[in-house]
Design a protein around this nucleic acid. Sequence first.
RNA 1: GCCCUCGUAGCUCAGUGGAUAGAGCAGUUCCCUUCUAAGGAAAAGGUCGGGGGUUCAACUCCCUCCGAGGGCGCCA
Length: 663
Amino acid sequence: MQNLQHSISIKLIELVKREYSLDIDYETAVLEKPKKEEWGDLASTVALKISSKAGHSPADIAKKLCFLLNNEEFTFTFNDVVYPIFEKIDFAFPGFINFKFSVPYLLNYALELSSKGLNVKDQKRPNISLKIALEHSNVNPNKAAHVGHLRNACIGQFIERVYEKMGHDVNVQYYEDDLGVQVSTSLMGTMELKDINPSDYEKFDHYAWDVYAKMESLIVQDENLQKKREHLMQRLEDSKDEISVEQSKLADRILKDQLVTFGKLDFDYDVIIREKDIVSLGLWNRAFEKLKTNPNVYLATSGPSKGCWMINMSGDKNEDAGSLISDSENQEEISVQEPLGGGRVIEEDKVIVRSNGVPTYTGKDIAYHMWKYGLLGLDFYYRELDIGTQKKILWTTSSEESDISKDVSFSKNDYVIDVIDVKQTYAIDVVRASLSYLGYTSEAENMTHVNYGFVYLSPKTAEKMGIDTSDGKTQYAMSGRKGWGIKVDDLIEMVDSKLRAEYGDFKNVNDVRNGAIKFEMLRYNTFQDIVFDLDAALSLNGFSGPYIQYTHARTFSILEKGAFQEIDFYSLPTSLHEREVAVLAQLAKFSSVVLEAAYEFAPNNLCNYLFELAQKYNTFYNELPILSSPQEEKKVRMAITESVKAVITEGLFLIGITAPNRM
RNA sequence: GCCCUCGUAGCUCAGUGGAUAGAGCAGUUCCCUUCUAAGGAAAAGGUCGGGGGUUCAACUCCCUCCGAGGGCGCCA
C-alpha cells in the first residue's frame, strides 16, 4: 500500500516534468484520501496545485494526467496471473484525479491481511531496529492511580505496541518518584494520622490516597509541620537513613497495589526506575558534575533563588554550550558565576538544586535522561519484581550490589519517548535544554515528549465525587493533594457492575470492561484536555470499544457456522455490491492509518478507523445475507468477514484491547 | 505581564489548504418466526465564536477582537 502510493507519486512527478517542464516536490505529488468513498480510494490534487505555473486550467491538466496514467501499467500478480490494480483513474472538477481500486486488488489485499496480518515498516527509519525507552504511567508511590494516570498508561501502551509492530525494540519504564515533597507528606501521614487505618481499606493504595489528602490539608496550615516535612525530605535522600528505609517499604507497598490495578487492565512494564537509586548509585552526582561546569548552569548568589543551582531557560543561551569541561581544577570558579547577561530575569530559570542541597525532581530527571542514553557511564543494578500482575518479566532498579544482573540493562537507548501530561512541558524542556547544553544535541532531538491533555471532571461527575461545584465551572481538575479524583479501581468496579446489570454475568466481562475503559481514554485527540464524565464513560453503545468488540464477536459467530473457502479469482463477479466494496476499501486503508497514528502519536486515528470499519461491516451485514447467499458470493462475503475479524483483532490489540469471540 | 491550547449540530467530539463540513449521544419514525438488536435504516438538527487578510481554493494559514482553560514553583 505504502509502496504503491509512493510509486504513483513518483510517476506523477515524472509526468508533470515531461508534460509541463515543471519540477514539483514530493509533497505536491503526495496522494490523499478522498473525503467520500464514491470518489475513489486515492486522490491527487497535483493539477490544482500546478495549474497557475503550468498555464493550463486544472481540469485540462487533470484530464491529461488521467489519460497518461491510464496508459501506465499498475498491476499485481496473484497465482501467476496479472491483474490491474485500479478499476479506473478519472478526473473530477475542478481538477481532482481519483483512483479507484479494482475488485481483485481489494480482495487480494483483504486476503493477505487475514492470512499474514498487518505488515507495517517504519518508513522513516527503514531496516533499523531502534532501542526505545518509553516512559509512562509514573504514578507517584503515595496514592492510588486515578483516571488521569489511566489516560497516560493507555497512550503509552498504544505507543509501545505500535512501535514494536514497526520493528523497534521498546522497553517500558515506570518511573517511581520515591523522593521529594509528595512522598514525605505521605510518610508523615502514616506516622501521625492515627484515625485513618489500613485495615479499613480493601487496598493499601486507597488508604494512602486518604492519608495523603488529609496530611496535606494539615501541613498547608501549619508551619511547624512544613518544617518537619522538609527535614524528612532531606533524610530521605540518604538511602541508608532508617527513615528512608521505612519510606521505601511504604512506597513498595503502594507501588505493588498500583501494579495490581494496572494489571487488571493488561498493562505491562519492563522496569521500575526508582528515583532513590538515581541518587544512591551516584547517577545524580555524575550528572551534576557535568552540569556544574557548563556555562548555562550557575549558582544563584542573589535574588529569590539565592543559594540554588539554576539552569538557564530564559532563551539567552550561552555560546559556550556544549563544551564539556571535565576535571577542571578551576571548577568552583567556573561554576560559581553570576547569571548570564547581568540584569537577566533569573526567575525564568529553573532550579535544579534547592538551597538546602537537595536536587529537585527536574534535576534528577536530567540525570535519568542522561542515563537513558547511556551518557553517564553508570548503570543501575536490577532485580526481578514478581508480583504476578503481568505477562512480561518485570525488573526494578536496585542499589544492592548483590542484585547485579549482567543480562539486563535498560540504558543506552537510541530513542526516548516520554508520555507526560501537557502541564509538565516546561520541565521536559529543561531536560532537553540540558542535554543540548552538554553537547548532546542528537539525544535532545531524539527525545519526544508525548504531551497529552489533562483529564478534568465534568461538573456532574465532580459533584458525585463530593467536590463543591457551586462556583459553576465547566470542568474540575483532579487533585491528589485534595483527594479529588476517580480512582481506576473504582471505575473498573462501576463498569463491571453496569455490564452485569445489563447483560448478566458473562465470561468475557473483563475484556469488554477493558474495551470500554481504554477506548474511552483514547478516542479523543491526544493533545487535548478531556472532560471526563462518568455517564459517557460507562456508555457501551455507538462510538465505543464494546461496539467494535461486538462486531468482532459477530464475525466470529458467522465464521464458526460456515467454513472459509478459497476464492477463485477467475470467476469473480466484475463488480461487487457497494456494501462489500465499502468494507474492502476500508480494509485497504489499515496500514496507512496505523503508520499515521504511530508517527503522530495519535491513537484516536486508529479508534476512528476501527469504528468506521465496524460500522461499514454492520451495514453490510444487515443488508446482505452471508451464509445463505449463492456459492460465489458466499465465498467473497466470508473472505470479507474473515479479514474484518483479523483487522479488528489486530487494531484493537494496538490500542490495548482484546477481542473476545463471544459477548 | 510573557507564553501555550481550545471555541464546529442541544451535548461529547472528528475534520493537519481542496469536492455538498461528518460521527456518536439525546430526541422523532421504522426493522428481530431470517447469520449475535451491545445491531441496522430514515428524517431532523450548522452564521465552523465575531471581524479583517493571504489564496484558483480557508473550519484549516496570518492578524485582530471576544470567550474558556493551562504553563511561567526551592511541587511534580
